[in-house]
């Protein structure tokens, strides 16, 4: 049941890994009545264990590295990471500053990159909608993996080949 409704109501988690606050207030603005990201069922939550989409802003500073990875690992699968703002995508103006790790994808895999300094709410909404599609395809992949592990169905004593789990080298033995 959760799989069914995950796409309808994804919860987002937001973490500032060292940005200038510009993108953070634009994320807040995109949740506000004019842009209304909540019409997609998106709810901003502070709890990583209940979230599906991870919005990261800012180049990763030395002190926020650990927290970023910790939050990412605490999120349940499937999860999508959206890097918001130029500095989280490439480092932007903060590139090569001494306490900065330049970009988010050095630490966690990023699925959607949203450009702009600061990213406008329209772009953020575009990014989140794209993230919804990725979330759905990731969910499907996970379900497919689950099917492979199922025990084969036996009807009238005949085992359907399609439903049997394939093992490595199984085909070679037959031939």
């Amino acid at each position: 049941m959760f799989e069914k409704y995950r796409k309808k109501s994804p919860w987002i988690l937001h973490y500032n890994a060292g940005s200038c606050n510009g993108c953070d207030i634009e994320i807040l603005a995109s949740l506000s009545p004019k842009y209304d990201l909540e019409r997609f069922g998106v709810v901003n939550t502070g709890n990583p264990k209940q979230s599906d989409i991870f919005l990261v802003t800012g180049p990763v500073t030395y002190r926020s590295r650990e927290r970023l990875v910790e939050l990412y690992t605490q999120m349940p699968e499937p999860k999508v990471v959206v890097a918001v703002g130029s500095c989280s995508c490439t480092g932007g103006v903060f590139r090569d500053m001494y306490n900065v790790e330049d970009r988010v994808d050095r630490y966690i895999p990023v699925d959607v990159y949203v450009a702009g300094c600061a990213s406008s709410p329209e772009l953020i909404i575009d990014g989140v909608v794209k993230a919804l599609d990725i979330l759905e395809s990731k969910t499907k992949e996970m379900e497919f993996a689950k099917k492979l592990q199922n025990k084969p169905k036996i009807e009238d004593g005949i085992v359907s080949r399609k439903e049997m789990p394939r093992r490595v080298g199984e085909n070679d033995e037959e031939s």
């Binding site: 500032n16 890994a17 060292g18 940005s19 800012g58 180049p59 500073t61 030395y62 002190r63 926020s64 927290r67 903060f94 090569d96 500053m97 001494y98 306490n99 900065v100």
Partner: peptide, 11 residues
């Protein structure tokens, strides 16, 4: 308070 220290003054 040092989570977002980037080093602007040096840059």
């Amino acid at each position: 308070v040092g989570f977002v220290h980037r080093g602007v003054e040096r840059a």
